[in-house]
Simulated scan of single mutants.
Amino acid sequence: AWPLPTMHITQLNRECLLHLFSFLDKDSRKSLARTCPQLQDVFEDPALWPLLHFRSLTELKKDNFLLSPALRSLSICWYSSRVQVCSIEDWLKSAFQRSICSRHESLVNDFLFQVCDRLRGLNDTVAGPQ
């Protein structure tokens, strides 16, 4: 039997690479993009980012997504211990809890300001804890 020819992923055309990337979550996309400039270029293609779904605050901290005009749907749906702490009335919070809430609030607010800045006309909803 003849040996099968080997092919490197970067030999695929851009359309195929975008299709492959579309099956990966944000973390996996970022990891793959770090392997070479060509894959980083695919990672940064706005067509790859029509939907963003965040399940935790740590996903907002990572450089693992792209905000672009291609974004059609954005959801932020988490219920973490931090969010739970932040739902306590201010006067009941300890200094530590106030500190956590302050960081959580500014993180989400900064992110949403970036979204609004870059994506005028985004008409899908941003959901809170469910």
Rank of each mutant, 00 (worst) to 15 (best):
47 A>T: 12
47 A>W: 12
47 A>Y: 04
48 L>G: 05
48 L>C: 04
48 L>R: 04
48 L>E: 01
48 L>W: 00
49 W>S: 06
49 W>G: 03
50 P>H: 04
50 P>K: 03
50 P>M: 05
50 P>R: 02
51 L>T: 12
51 L>Y: 13
52 L>M: 03
53 H>Q: 10
53 H>T: 08
54 F>T: 00
54 F>Y: 03
55 R>F: 07
55 R>S: 11
56 S>L: 13
57 L>E: 11
57 L>C: 06
57 L>T: 07
57 L>I: 10
58 T>Q: 15
59 E>A: 01
59 E>W: 00
60 L>Y: 04
60 L>H: 00
61 K>M: 12
62 K>F: 13
62 K>G: 05
63 D>S: 03
63 D>C: 01
63 D>I: 01
63 D>R: 03
63 D>Q: 05
63 D>L: 06
64 N>W: 07
64 N>E: 15
65 F>K: 03
65 F>E: 10
66 L>Y: 08
66 L>A: 02
66 L>Q: 06
67 L>T: 00
68 S>N: 05
68 S>P: 00
68 S>R: 01
68 S>F: 01
68 S>G: 05
69 P>E: 08
69 P>D: 11
69 P>H: 07
69 P>C: 07
69 P>G: 08
69 P>K: 10
70 A>G: 14
70 A>H: 15
70 A>S: 15
71 L>T: 04
71 L>N: 02
71 L>D: 05
71 L>S: 02
72 R>A: 12
73 S>P: 03
73 S>G: 04
73 S>V: 09
74 L>E: 06
74 L>Y: 00
74 L>Q: 02
74 L>M: 02
75 S>A: 05
75 S>K: 07
75 S>D: 14
76 I>C: 04
76 I>H: 05
76 I>V: 13
76 I>S: 03
77 C>N: 15
77 C>L: 15
77 C>M: 15
78 W>H: 05
78 W>D: 02
79 Y>V: 07
80 S>K: 07
80 S>M: 02
81 S>K: 13
82 R>D: 11
82 R>T: 08
82 R>H: 08
82 R>I: 08
83 V>T: 13
83 V>C: 11
83 V>K: 14
83 V>I: 13
84 Q>I: 09
84 Q>F: 09
84 Q>A: 11
85 V>C: 10
86 C>Y: 01
86 C>V: 03
86 C>H: 00
87 S>Y: 10
87 S>E: 10
87 S>R: 14
87 S>L: 11
87 S>G: 10
87 S>T: 06
88 I>A: 10
88 I>Y: 09
89 E>F: 04
89 E>D: 14
89 E>A: 10
89 E>V: 03
89 E>H: 08
90 D>T: 06
90 D>L: 14
90 D>Q: 13
91 W>V: 05
92 L>G: 04
92 L>Y: 09
92 L>C: 11
92 L>H: 11
93 K>D: 01
94 S>H: 06
94 S>K: 04
95 A>C: 09
95 A>I: 15
95 A>Q: 14
96 F>H: 12
96 F>N: 12
97 Q>N: 01
97 Q>F: 06
97 Q>D: 08
97 Q>P: 00
97 Q>K: 01
97 Q>C: 02
98 R>L: 13
